[in-house]
Simulated scan of single mutants.
Amino acid sequence: MAPKHFLSAATIVLNEHNEILLIKGPERGWEMPGGVVEEGESLKNAAIRETKEESGIDIEVTKFCAVFQNVSQSIE
């Protein structure tokens, strides 16, 4: 049975020149690294893992900046 909702984490990665890391995805184009949080995984660890998987870069999470919920889609 598929879960009724997904929890995702995305990162804003800045370098020493305040440049933002973007990943070019095959379907959506340029976007911040991120993806689905695995069962039992924290948001912090998911952000670190997804950034490493998508860019090869190790990051340190220094703060959380937002939580977003899409309330326009209903799941049945």
Rank of each mutant, 00 (worst) to 15 (best):
G56N: 12
H17R: 12
A10E: 12
E76T: 11
K24N: 09
K63R: 15
K63H: 15
H5S: 02
V36L: 04
I75K: 00
E41Y: 14
V37G: 04
I23D: 02
I12T: 02
T51E: 08
E41T: 12
I57M: 14
E39S: 14
E50P: 01
E31T: 03
L7K: 06
A46Y: 02
Q69T: 10
K63F: 14
W30K: 15
G40C: 10
V37H: 02
T11Y: 07
L21C: 03
L43S: 08
I75H: 03
K52Q: 00
S72C: 08
K52F: 08
Q69K: 08
M32V: 06
R49S: 06
I57H: 03
I20D: 00
S72Y: 13
V13D: 05
S74N: 13
M1A: 15
E31V: 03
T51A: 13
G25E: 05
F68V: 13
I23A: 06
E31P: 00
I12S: 03
F64D: 04
Q73E: 13
H17K: 10
E50D: 03
Q69S: 14
V71Q: 09
E50G: 02
H5R: 09
R49K: 02
T62R: 08
L21T: 00
N15W: 09
K52A: 03
S74E: 14
H17D: 01
L43T: 08
I59M: 07
V13K: 04
M32S: 11
E31H: 09
K4C: 11
G35C: 10
I57K: 11
V67H: 15
H5C: 04
A10P: 01
L14W: 01
L43F: 15
R28F: 06
G35E: 05
L21F: 00
V67E: 13
P3Q: 06
E16C: 13
F64L: 09
E31Y: 04
W30F: 12
L43I: 14
D58M: 02
T62W: 10
R49I: 07
G34W: 08
N45T: 03
R28P: 00
E16F: 14
V61I: 15
P26Q: 00
N15K: 06
D58Y: 04
N70E: 15
S42E: 10
I59F: 05
E16A: 15
E41G: 14
V61T: 07
V61A: 02
E39D: 15
G56V: 09
L21H: 00
N18S: 03
E38S: 12
E27C: 00
V36G: 00
V36Y: 03
P33D: 06
V71T: 13
D58Q: 01
P26K: 04
E76N: 12
